[in-house]
Each structure stands twice: as C-alpha cells, then as structure tokens.
Design a protein around this nucleic acid. Structure first.
Lengths: 235, 235
DNA sequence: AAGTGGTCTAGACCACCCT
DNA sequence: GGGTGGTCTAGACCACTTT
C-alpha cells in the first residue's frame, strides 16, 4: 500500500475507535512526519484526504480539528457498499437475494451516460433493517467485466466480490436521485401502501480504467429515508 | 490567487466553453508545466482537483480524459449558491424575498450539529423556475458573523454577499436530506396539493475558521426534484 | 523507447495563531 | 518567536500504455 494511504487508514481507524475525539486536534504534520518517517507532503496528502472527506478540518496556525461525525446515515455522494454502511452504523440488517439472472436487458432509464453494450447480469436484492424491508436494489452488471456472480457474493457484498475477489478497482459513479410513486412491485416487496413515495437512486459505476462496471437502481421507502451529506465549498 | 487555483479555473473555463470536449484528453502534466511555467506538483494539484470534482478522469499511462458532464442538476454534495446553479444550467429563474427579520429563534430541528448561540437573522425566499414556484428557502444567519442582511443581497445572492462583500470564507456544510409531507405553508406558497411530498434539505454551513455561518432549510417539491451526484470511491 | 500519470522526497517561504 | 498549516519547487523513481 502507498505510504499516504497507510497513514490515512491508520488515522481513520484512530478516529473511529475514538482515540481522537471531536474537538481534539490531531498531531501536527511535523509529528506525523517523525512518527511515520516520511516527508511532509506525504503526511499532507493523507490528512488532506481526511479533511476532504469531512473527518477533520484544517485550521491555519492552529492545527487539525477533529469534526463531529454523527454523519453517514446514507451518503449519496460516496460510493459505499451496503455492507460497509451497515458495519459502520452498527445496524441490524439482513439481505434477501431475490434473483440472479444472466443475459438481461438493461432498462433504458438507467443508461443516462454511457450506452450499454447489450445484455447484463441482473441481481435483485432486498435490504431489511430491524426486520423491516427498506430498500430494493436492482444491479445490472457488465458481463465484459464480470463473468459470473455467485449467489454467495450477492448475499454478502457485490463490492467486496468485485474488489477483493476479482481485483477490480472502482473509481467513481454518477448518481441520479428522484422521488417517485411506489410501483406495484415496490408495494408488494416492501409491504407498503401506495401513498408512501420512493427515493430512487440510479447510478452508473466506473472502474479506474474507465470501463463501465454496473448500473444500479436503488429504491428506498421515502418515509424512512435519511441521508447525511458532507459538502465542501469549491471556489 | 494561488497558482494551482489559477490553473484549475483556467482549465475549468476551457471545459465549460467546450474547448475540451468529453472524450478528449487534456494536455499532459508536462505540457501544463511548460505552459504555466510551474512545477509538476502544482499542475497535479490543479488537475487532481478537477478529477476529484468529476470533470476529468486520470488514466495511468494514457492521459487525462474529459468526462461527460450533463451533471449538476442539483448537487447536494456541493455547496453552490442558487444563483451559481441557475447560471451554470442557464435556467430561467426568479427569486422572491418573502421576509427578512432579525432576532429570530432558530428552529430546533435545524440545530443538529452545533448548539446555536441564540437569535439569528431570518431570510425567507421562494425560487421560481420558468415562472413556477419550486423551492422555499429559510436561512438563519449567525449575527455574530453577519451584522445585517440588506434586501438587495437576499434578492441577488446571499453567498455572493458573504464572500465578496463581507470577505467571508465558506468551507463546508453538513446536510440532512429527508422526504416529508407538504406543510400548509408549502402548499400555500408553492401552490401545490397535499399529495405532493417535499424534499427537505437542512444544512449547517461553516467558515474556514470553523465559525458557524448559517442554518438553512430548503424545501423542494418532490415531483420536480432531480439531483445528480458525482461520487468517488474511497478505499 | 517514449510518454503518461502516481508517489515520494528534502527543502523553501509564507500567513496565521498563540504565548 | 515558535508552532501550525498552505503553497511551491526540482528532482527522482515507478507502473502503465502506446508506438
């Protein structure tokens, strides 16, 4: 692993365990330089990424302040697997794999950026939190990138399978968020009535070599939906 | 202005005018080093920020690819003033200032991070797109940071007033997104019926010195709401 | 082999905050 | 004045892609 990534992960884990509390200051750049035996620019790259991601704030002349992170209810602006979210928030969550099917056409409304090459592997899942069905996920995976999806991978975590089993490097996604009325399938699978709207997040996920990995449609019952975002000013 | 910021703005404006088209490659780092007479790390800082913001993708060994940006319908993960959005998307939009009032209590549900020190300056505005009222914005501004808000600033752009008139440096915001039913005031001011839900975005905006600038509640009619996000993978 | 982006270094100077 | 973060430099080596 790169040096700055090691530092990033190291400090992040100290933030998660509470070794550094909100309101505390991180060790200064110079301290980290000594501790990790690296140059200052390398330290700055790591701490800069933590600031970019909203964990800390750099205060000129003062130090690096640890921010309060009750965050991460559902970060639309980050690519996180459902499993990572569940773990981070200590949710009681289960996962029903409803369907895995090859050679499926990709719905037109999902192809907002790139034209899809053709057929895909479809994975349909339902996420339950505290026993209540909350989210329906429809994944359409590019068969030119992923040959096959075993049920165990869908049950566990597709991202984990892609990254750690297949060695794929996920880079970015474009996400469209809209509010729509519940479809018949939504009502049936989530056991909700017609008057509960749905938050629909359609995304297109790319690899670092810019190949298209997958299209996803994620449908949340709106009455239980909360998202917490960290936004930075670009000027 | 810093050198890398100048390069960032320079290239961004070339991307906006279409000098660089999606699918094109930007000039290489070395080319920019020669053009701007700076070191490579400075070029990399500028181009890296463009990649971070989703304008381009860095491809090892190949170059810097210009991505397709039909993006920016409503980027929740970025802090942009309504005016900046309108300009970038070439919308036909007007702005009604409904109320400016000092010494107003801040609603409890907005204070999710910091406890507010007390009273605030309240600004209530309605945004109309193509003549239709679409969004209600309630701003509660910290009087310890901003003494007074002239009506012209609320009419034009609060962010422009804060940054360019008062010299404040906005850094980050924490935003909570929920879906709620329309209130009586929503229905009256936006002329919608009860069955149209609202996308409610509550945010807390901070300065670079970590002072609290404002709380904002932004209420969108959900049937017209679209957000397009660019999300990066952190691993 | 030549060109590209990715990482890292050791040093410099600056602006800001605190004592 | 000493410590902090912010910017910038000139150079190095690497992995990757293309010719």
């Amino acid at each position: 692993m790169d040096k700055y990534q090691r530092i990033y992960q190291d400090v992040l884990s100290d933030l998660r365990t509470g070794k550094y509390q909100p309101g505390d200051y991180l060790p200064s750049d110079t301290k980290f330089v000594m501790r990790y035996q690296v140059s200052r620019e390398t330290v700055r790259k790591a701490v800069g990424a933590l600031a970019e991601d909203g964990y800390v704030q750099r205060l000129k002349g003062k130090g690096t302040l640890v921010l309060d992170r009750k965050h991460f209810a559902f970060p639309v602006s980050m690519i996180e697997s459902y499993r990572e979210l569940v773990e981070e928030m200590h949710l009681e969550s289960t996962n029903d794999v409803l369907r895995i099917q090859e050679q499926v056409m990709i719905p037109q409304e999902l192809q907002f950026e790139k034209a899809a090459s053709g057929l895909s592997i479809q994975v349909v899942r339902r996420r339950n939190v505290d026993g209540d069905p909350m989210v329906l996920d429809y994944d359409y995976i590019n068969p030119e990138v992923v040959e096959t999806v075993p049920k165990s991978a869908a049950q566990d975590s597709l991202f984990n399978y892609f990254e750690n089993q297949l060695g794929l490097q996920i880079d970015y996604a474009v996400k469209h968020i809209t509010i729509e009325t519940a479809s018949a399938e939504d009502r049936r699978l989530l056991q909700i009535s017609e008057d509960i709207p749905m938050v629909v997040i359609r995304s297109e996920t790319h690899l670092t070599d810019n190949r298209l990995l997958s299209f996803t449609e994620s449908r949340h019952r709106a009455d239980r939906f909360t998202s917490i975002e960290f936004a930075r000013r670009r000027k």
